[in-house]
Design a protein around this nucleic acid. Structure first.
Lengths: 236, 236
DNA sequence: CCAGATGAAATCGTCAGACGATATTGACGA
DNA sequence: TCGTCAATATCGTCTGACGATTTCATCTGG
């Protein structure tokens, strides 16, 4: 009886762990989200080398699963994978940032235009999200600006009603951009930026697509000017 | 000496096979491209079940590598992976197609606008690509329309000079859409569609961004009308 | 004391095989 | 014919392995 040769550890069978939001999530998706979140919270910084063995031990997963997650992030342009050289969090140079902002502007404009035609109660949701963000920034308890940003865009895309938009919009790359320039941004600049979200939300709430698009364009124009004022080492 | 226990088959070490275009390509990238190409050539059709063991044998690769490739395609929205249910080539319903076309229109518009400002010799390249396509369609030797399409868009993005555009533009999903409606399209409709590329190319060549954008909008408007005329079973 | 050679360690891409869990299918009986 | 149940197919994940290449520290000669 007790002479079994194999102790046979419980062998955690990874059967779709429910995630904090309640939805079921495969290991791959979960790990990819952890890394994305890690970028937002500066646990990972652009340029950092991600050693596979390290991560498998930290996250308690196999290399296969980890690599599937990394491959996913690689497809999104979040990490670069080079043979023998390893996986690195992408760093964006000025050129990449310009290109990224231009594409983002187009897609967010579309989202804002569409959002103006959403039912009023949905549009209120967007305004509410921004309201909450404004409070957390003015208050002493500095709510994570990255989380605010994410909520804003998630809500905007949600009420835009176009399912393709969140799929193609490179929000994760924008997170990369934000993470990269964060050390060079003043608190005042962050506040100003958050105001932009408020203006967009109000324009969407007004129901005028032209106004909404104008607000988005202004927001991105301001972002571009902010980028221009950045020290060179911030953008490679 | 000769009593070695392990015959040790050559053990093909997969050290970055050079691809047809000369660039080095990892197994994952190569497999993903094979599947994408398979969709364009109807070797794979929307809705089809991709059995992993089958593909590993057909492509002579390990399941790990295959799954990394599938994960990549999954991120691009080309295949859906459901636990225990397997991997399937995505099928787009009418709603998904509408959303896709709307996003595509925005991104291609941007590309066309930017392209008008490219050096003249580059703009000529685009026109040349379309010329070749026109010939292959009018001639008896029916050049693959999907290849033509791909060349057109690749060239357009190339000369647009924005590196983010090809990354985010869901061209592969558009391939999916094309593959799905192909059985319901007449030859005449395909010719008409190819003409649209020609008009866009000419507008880009003219150097007028307003004209170029208008050409793109007209092209997508025509595509939408074509979709409206499609039988219901073509769009789920 | 420093520059180049050299060898060991680290890391990656790929492969092979295994196991538990679930969906699917086909046989069987009511 | 239709529902039940067992066998099969397939998937997600894990473990372990191996060759190839980069990286880094050590060693040697000038």
């Amino acid at each position: 009886m007790s002479g079994g040769v194999k102790p046979k550890t419980p062998k955690r069978t990874a059967v779709a762990t429910p995630d904090p939001d309640g939805r079921a999530m495969g290991t791959t998706e979960r790990v990819a989200e952890i890394i994305r979140q890690g970028i937002r919270t500066s646990q990972f910084v652009p340029g950092q080398h991600l050693v596979e063995i390290d991560l498998t031990q930290r996250l308690q997963i196999s290399r296969s699963s980890l690599r599937e997650a990394l491959r996913h992030l690689n497809g999104d342009g979040i990490v670069s994978m080079g043979r023998y050289r390893g996986t690195h969090i992408c760093r964006l140079d000025r050129r990449a940032i310009d290109d990224l902002l231009e594409v983002l502007e187009q897609l967010v404009s579309l989202a804002a235009r569409r959002a103006t035609k959403a039912p009023l109660e949905k549009r209120r949701l967007l305004d509410a999200a921004v309201e909450a963000s404004g409070k957390s920034l003015n208050g002493v308890d500095n709510g994570n600006p990255m989380l605010v940003r994410q909520t804003f865009y998630d809500t905007l895309f949600e009420i835009s009603g176009n399912d393709e938009l969140p799929r193609v919009t490179p929000l994760s790359r924008a997170d990369l951009f934000r993470a990269q320039i964060r050390p060079y941004q003043s608190h005042e600049e962050q506040r100003k930026h958050a105001e932009g979200y408020g203006l967009i939300a109000q324009a969407v709430l007004s129901g005028d697509p032209v106004k909404a698009e104008a607000a988005v364009r202004a927001h991105f124009e301001a972002t571009r000017q902010m980028v221009d004022r950045l020290p060179p080492q911030a953008v490679e």
